[in-house]
């Protein structure tokens, strides 16, 4: 029996990093305090247009990420709003102590913008992929952690974080993925977006896994299973009320993310369920592993990070209800 379900249209595949670039370009025009720093990856981060429009507000620091984070922290003294850009791996693990002391503990208004996050960086392999960054960043007191799902949402998030006072980690990626959230949509930091209504299972997804969750929900719908898909763009602070409300209704949850299950969104969801309303949960995430070379699609398949994996997890969790 097929149920009615809200559907989403892919307006065309686009990379989330280009959403960041577009947002930064807009910020360049609208907010003169916004400055951008890059560690030799201007093209990869789609920061070229900002650089061309505002050369005086663009700072090329070279291959020196630690220095970049420190300079960004210093620029806030004087009222600037620095956006740093490099790959997620080099935005977090490489500079953790600099972020911890000079940005987070110092309470500086720095926006750490990280592209090529997760395994979908692809062919460069595990040295450049990172599946631990959400955990690293969410553990820092006061750090806001955002992982966007498509081009439109990444652009909206880029604009929103400029208005937010305090350190932010904005995580996005390299591959072209379906663009399905509204153009110029509202972005509220810390507010979950419920994409579908469902009664049987809640699917809490973030980043590239949100579209996969919708695909899974569509397939499950054809089998008569009604899934409530929640798009969590802000992992910290987490919209606990939205998740608890949905799980109260459905009685079980699958979390889905392009990240190690240690330290990821799934663990944050498990914590609030354990505290408030323990229910069965299954995790779609990588299983304590590094990545490897391959195409994004191959890697998502091999590491169980797609709609098929979500469907399977839903079946498992339903059996545990």
């Amino acid at each position: 029996m097929e149920l009615t379900m809200k559907t989403y249209i892919n307006s065309g595949n686009k990379d989330t990093r280009s959403g960041f670039g577009a947002g930064l370009t807009e910020l360049g025009k609208s907010n003169e305090n916004v400055v951008a720093l890059c560690a030799d990856l201007t093209g990869s981060l789609k920061m070229d247009e900002f650089k061309a429009n505002h050369p005086e507000r663009f700072f090329q620091v070279g291959i020196a990420e630690a220095n970049m984070i420190g300079i960004a922290a210093g620029m806030t003294v004087g009222g600037k709003i620095p956006f740093t850009g490099t790959f997620a791996n080099f935005s977090t693990g490489r500079v953790y102590d600099q972020i911890r002391q000079s940005v987070a503990y110092s309470g500086k208004n720095v926006k750490i913008c990280a592209s090529h996050a997760g395994i979908t960086l692809g062919e460069d392999g595990a040295t450049h992929q990172i599946l631990e960054d959400i955990g690293l960043m969410k553990m820092l007191p006061g750090m806001t952690v955002i992982n966007t799902c498509d081009y439109n949402q990444t652009k909206a998030a880029t604009l929103a974080i400029a208005e937010h006072k305090g350190p932010v980690y904005l995580r996005f990626g390299r591959p072209k993925v379906p663009n399905f959230t509204p153009e110029n949509g509202e972005f509220k930091i810390g507010k979950a977006v419920q994409l579908t209504d469902g009664n049987d299972v809640t699917i809490v997804a973030t980043g590239h896994l949100v579209w996969e969750a919708l695909e899974a929900a569509r397939a499950l719908n054809e089998e008569g299973i009604s899934a409530e898909v929640i798009n969590i763009h802000t992992i910290k602070p987490l919209d606990e009320d939205a998740i608890l409300k949905s799980v109260e209704k459905t009685g079980c949850v699958v979390t889905a993310e392009e990240h190690n299950y240690y330290g990821g969104l799934g663990e944050s969801v498990a914590r609030i369920l354990t505290q408030h309303n323990p229910k069965p949960q299954e995790f779609v995430a990588t299983n304590d592993t590094f990545g490897e070379s391959g195409t994004p699609a191959q890697l998502m398949d091999k590491y169980g990070l797609n709609s098929e994996a979500i469907k399977k997890a839903v079946k498992t969790v339903l059996n545990r209800k």
């Binding site: 620029m75 009222g79 000079s102």
Partner: peptide, 14 residues
Amino acid sequence: GQGMSVAIGAAEAK
């Protein structure tokens, strides 16, 4: 080892 970078950032802001 972090203060020099911070000082440079503040100098750029000035």
